[in-house]
Design a protein around this nucleic acid. Structure first.
Lengths: 332, 332
DNA sequence: CTGAAAGCGCTTACAG
DNA sequence: CTGAAAGCGCTTACAG
């Protein structure tokens, strides 16, 4: 038979003080006499009392809960992101309410649910929302920070890896190394990460006089990278360099090359994007553009704090450059 | 300037009904006249009203939030688990409060925080808690369900892959195939998954007359599997069959074998445990014992529902057998 | 420093 | 079916 939850009133009675005093003891920074504090703490310990976070939230109007909306948790780039977010949030005494969104769809239907729980702020990653919804959140005073996405001209702030610059960097690398026939293996078509990485890659290729390159669709999975590479490498005129929109697809590309007897990096150079741990495994030794995850997370969390403190501050979009990690999958 | 959050009182005023009626319209299964419902809904829509989940929780005494405590999110077995839990919880109208625990330590310090938020139930995975704490939760009426762990004789229910049986299965497979020199690459020593997998493996080996086999420590990471295999394969008497306590270590073993020129499966057979997607990649083609994740999650969620409805029901420990996935890393 | 009281935004007997 | 009222467990002016 579950016992009644014990409340501040119970503690007050046991400690022979008022309920207000009990509350004060559990509110940091409020003056309480040492004598009262001692009585309350001892009674609280005896009864196993802990303040009720829900009741506290109702009156303080903040919950210390941050909503994280994520699609695509199974993409190997994200577990680390989620791990770091929750760890660092917990270190600041905040909790994480996790919402799963369908990849590729906006989260406009999910967000009202998040809002119902009065989260102090919302972090959205590998998913996007309409700018209408972003503005609605702003109206309600709930800060929204996008992680690795951005919505130009909306009220939502964002922290991104500079995906365009990353794409350009890969193009430069390929061109400097003298490759003649390049290919891009795309991520899910409607994601901003894919759009930007391809944009940077294509722009730079064109700027430097290349008019013709290959492009295969993919969907940010190992299997789709593998299939794209099979199509590419069995052509009469196969590419000598492939840029895959993320690491996991690049690893699929490498598996296809191995299977088809295409020698990497002698006959084929492959570069990925993300910097996931698996890229370092001996079977792949993947050269890639590493997203500065730590920095991006730190920046996001700072923005979260800043916007909670001042919700109507101007939205900012922060771009952090990726860095080349040279391993052995590309002759660059 | 953020607008005031709009409450049921605002809607009541706009719809010219009582606040109670507004509340009833948003409480499923409570009778309200069509006329009143229409007025309320229209006013609510106009004002953008949504009931406040925090206030509702305070009075109904349940939050519709399930706490999930997880260590080791970056272990590739878990993203899928988390993804499925959140998806299926959301489908039932429940939310997920995610807590990150340090791997290897119990979660006794974390749990009071979870409890403060009055979660309806707690799921603990890849982490464990003392039986004292389990009983404390039971006393408070908060059900605790362990996922892939169990605490004998405690008040916490559990859903597990049958790790002992899985270990036995691997031993039988190796023995039936005629291997002479077997090795076990261990997971983190203090985890119940590692203890049970090794126990089953060793028991069966002994039962069938094997007295001598190799054992190397590992910590459930690719790197530790790789290092363990290097130690094993550079011995004067290297093993001809390795059972790794999880897939990711088995993949590290395969990478070491590849690097050392040990041919798999001709000179060495490798079997893992978990059934993570990456095991199917062409670079590994890993034979493994697959944990029936879907079934385990469904069972866990059923248990969660059942215990929320009846918190003082007897704890149950449910074991679900794993299944062999034959690929090409083992000659069995 | 402390207590009595108001109030956060809901749900739910209670009476009609 | 509907409204007035009590109450969930806290925080925080207000007065002393």
């Amino acid at each position: 038979m579950p016992l009644k939850r014990i409340s501040s009133v119970d503690v007050a009675r046991a400690a022979k003080v008022s309920q207000s005093t009990v509350s004060r003891v559990f509110t940091p920074g409020v003056p309480v006499s040492d004598a009262a504090r001692a009585k309350v703490l001892s009674a609280a310990r005896k009864l196993g009392y802990r303040p009720d976070a829900i009741a506290r939230s109702l009156i303080t109007r903040h919950t210390n809960i941050i909503g994280i909306v994520m699609a695509d948790i199974t993409n190997p780039f994200y577990p680390n992101v989620l791990d770091q977010f929750t760890n660092r949030l917990q270190a600041r005494g905040k909790q994480t309410l996790l919402f799963n969104a369908s990849p590729g769809r906006d989260v406009d239907e999910t967000l009202p649910q998040v809002l119902q729980y009065r989260v102090d702020a919302i972090i959205i990653t590998s998913a996007t929302l309409s700018s209408v919804m972003a503005d609605e959140c702003a109206r309600l005073g709930t800060p929204v920070i996008l992680f690795n996405r951005y919505i130009p001209r909306s009220k939502a702030s964002a922290v991104c890896c500079d995906n365009v610059a990353g794409g350009q960097l890969v193009a430069d690398l390929f061109l400097d190394a003298g490759f003649k026939r390049m290919a891009y293996v795309a991520g899910r078509a409607n994601t901003s990460t894919n759009v930007d990485r391809e944009k940077g890659f294509a722009q730079r290729l064109r700027e430097r006089g290349v008019v013709d390159w290959l492009c295969e669709p993919g969907e940010y999975t190992h299997e789709s990278g593998y299939q794209a590479a099979r199509r590419l490498l069995t052509r009469a005129d196969p590419p000598d360099a492939i840029f895959a929109a993320n690491d996991i697809m690049a690893m699929g590309v490498l598996d296809a090359a191995r299977e088809l007897g295409v020698c990497v990096p002698d006959q084929l150079s492959v570069i990925g994007f993300d910097g996931i741990p698996a890229g370092a495994w001996q079977a792949y030794s993947l050269t890639t553009i590493r997203q500065p995850v730590e920095e991006m997370i730190a920046a996001t969390l700072e923005l979260v704090e800043a916007r909670i403190a001042k919700p109507d501050a101007k939205p900012v979009i922060q771009m952090i450059p990726g860095t080349l990690v040279k391993r052995t999958s590309a002759r660059v």
